[in-house]
Every structure is written in structure tokens, then in C-alpha cells.
């Protein structure tokens, strides 16, 4: 682990260059490049809000929860999708030049983080507006901790990213499988509904709520909301704390798996 860290810091210049390459090529070509990044989660949120309002006024009245959920969920999805092609999309580099392979998934995750921070500005503007109109309130001062939480969120995203990056080298249909899992996971996490809804559904079966809370995405989304929306609290139970800490174990496993499997990357590309 220590060796890996020194190896990565020795290549800080390369990581920086790759992040800049990623951001530049994303925003280059049109002003809309930057705009699309901001519009994407915005449209998603608008679609969910509109159709959820049709289904149930109860959920949809909590627009601020949906906004926070969708923006954070998009961050994770972006990291996973970019990680998927981090190795396979750079075959010529991996085969011809030596550098720590982890740099490739790491740099796309960092550029996704930069991207997420940009969308945060839009998110905060919306939160101010929504809270002012619907609740005559403002976001909590704790909102200032959101960038720090996003770093922890990044650790979680990076661990998933490393796993799919390696898996996709061995099995090119990983992306199909991951696509399926992502849509299931979307509904299993409180992205477009608040946590209380699950508590109500699982009222008769407490173990369901326990299992539900083990999902790190649940813990992270709830933490985002607890920091920003007045009146929401993070439920400090054993299961939720376990869910919150799970990424720490996951990143250790992911790094080990990635380091083990990278020996075979250039053979299979």
C-alpha cells in the first residue's frame, strides 16, 4: 500500500495531465459541452419530479431530496461507466508504456469529481430556490461539509470503478451485467424517494430496514441530505454506520484485486 502511494505520487504529473485531458475533451468543441454536464442531472431530476408528482404527491413534495439524490447518483454512475473503459479504452497505452495502471481509473474518477463539484453549484442554487419557495427555509450551514463528504463518496466510487475496470478486461460483457445491476441498485437506494418511505414500508419487518441500510449508497445519500436539508437526520444505527464504513473495506479489497489482476491486462487487451 505504501509502495503504491509513493508510486502514484511519483506520477502525480501524469495523473494531472490525464485529468486535464479528460476535462478538456469533455468541454471542448462546444459551449454546450459544459452545459450538458450541468443539464444532465437537472433533466433527470426534472423528469423524476414530474412523474413522481403524478404518482404520489407525498413523495414528490420533497423536491430537495430528489435533487440531492439524483445529482449524487449521477456522480457514482459516471465514475462506474468511466472506470469500465479506463483500461480497455487505453489498450495501446497499457500494452506499450509502463506506469501504475491504477492511474487510469483514478484519473477518470478525479475528473468525475471535478465535474460533480461543478454540478454542485447548480444543485445549491436549486436547493436555495426550492427550500425558499416550499418551506421558507434555507439549506443548513453544514452544507459546507458536502465537498468533504464528496471525497469520501469518491473513495466508494473509486473502489467500484477499479473492480469494473479490471473485470471488463477479463470479460467484455461486464458492461451489460453492470448496466442491469445499476438499474436494480437505483431502486434499492433512496435516490428518488426519502429514507422515511423505506422505514414505513419495512415497518412490519425490521430486518429489511437493517439490510437496506447496509447499502453504502443509502448511507452516503442520507448523509448528503442530513448535511443540507433542515429537519433531516442521519439515523445512527449499527446497520447505517456499517453501511457508511463499508467503502473503507471495499477500497482495500478493490485495490488488492486490481493489483493482482493487472499482471494479466496487457495479455488480454
Amino acid at each position: 500500500m505504501a509502495i503504491l502511494l509513493t508510486d502514484l505520487t511519483a506520477h502525480a504529473d501524469l495523473i494531472g495531465n490525464l485529468v486535464v485531458r479528460d476535462l478538456k475533451t469533455r468541454y471542448r468543441g462546444s459551449v454546450l459541452g459544459l452545459l450538458w454536464t450541468l443539464l444532465n442531472p437537472l433533466f433527470m431530476a426534472a423528469i423524476y419530479i414530474f412523474f413522481l408528482t403524478l404518482l404520489s404527491r407525498d413523495i414528490a413534495s420533497q423536491y430537495e431530496h430528489i435533487i440531492i439524490g439524483v445529482f449524487a447518483w449521477q456522480f457514482t454512475v459516471q465514475c462506474i461507466n468511466a472506470g469500465m473503459n479506463a483500461i480497455t479504452g487505453n489498450a495501446s497505452l497499457v500494452k506499450k508504456v509502463y506506469f501504475p495502471r491504477m492511474i487510469l481509473p483514478l484519473s477518470v474518477n478525479l475528473s468525475a469529481l471535478a465535474n460533480f463539484w461543478l454540478t454542485l453549484i447548480v444543485q445549491w442554487a436549486l436547493l436555495f430556490a426550492i427550500l425558499a419557495v416550499t418551506k421558507h427555509d434555507t439549506p443548513r450551514l453544514l452544507t459546507l461539509w458536502v465537498p468533504l463528504l464528496s471525497l469520501y463518496h469518491l473513495v466508494f466510487n473509486l473502489s467500484l470503478s477499479l473492480l469494473v475496470a479490471a473485470a471488463n478486461v477479463f470479460f467484455r460483457d461486464t458492461q451489460h451485467l453492470v448496466g442491469l445491476l445499476l438499474s436494480a441498485w437505483f431502486f434499492m437506494s433512496p435516490v428518488m424517494y426519502p429514507l422515511e418511505m423505506v422505514e414505513r414500508v419495512a415497518a412490519g419487518h425490521p430486518w429489511i430496514a437493517q439490510v437496506y441500510m447496509l447499502n453504502p449508497m443509502t448511507a452516503i445519500l442520507t448523509a448528503y441530505r442530513a448535511l443540507q436539508v433542515p429537519g433531516t437526520v442521519f439515523p445512527w444505527t449499527a446497520a447505517s454506520v456499517a453501511g457508511l464504513l463499508l467503502p473503507v473495506a471495499l477500497i482495500a479489497v478493490a485495490i488488492r484485486v486490481f493489483q493482482r489482476t493487472q499482471r494479466a491486462f496487457s495479455d488480454l487487451l
Binding site: 485531458r21 487505453n90 497505452l93 500494452k95
Partner: peptide, 9 residues
Amino acid sequence: ELGAGFHPD
């Protein structure tokens, strides 16, 4: 490999 890592854009 000459040009490895060049990005066309």
C-alpha cells in the same frame, strides 16, 4: 508506439 496517448481533439 509513437503517439501513444495522443488525443485527437
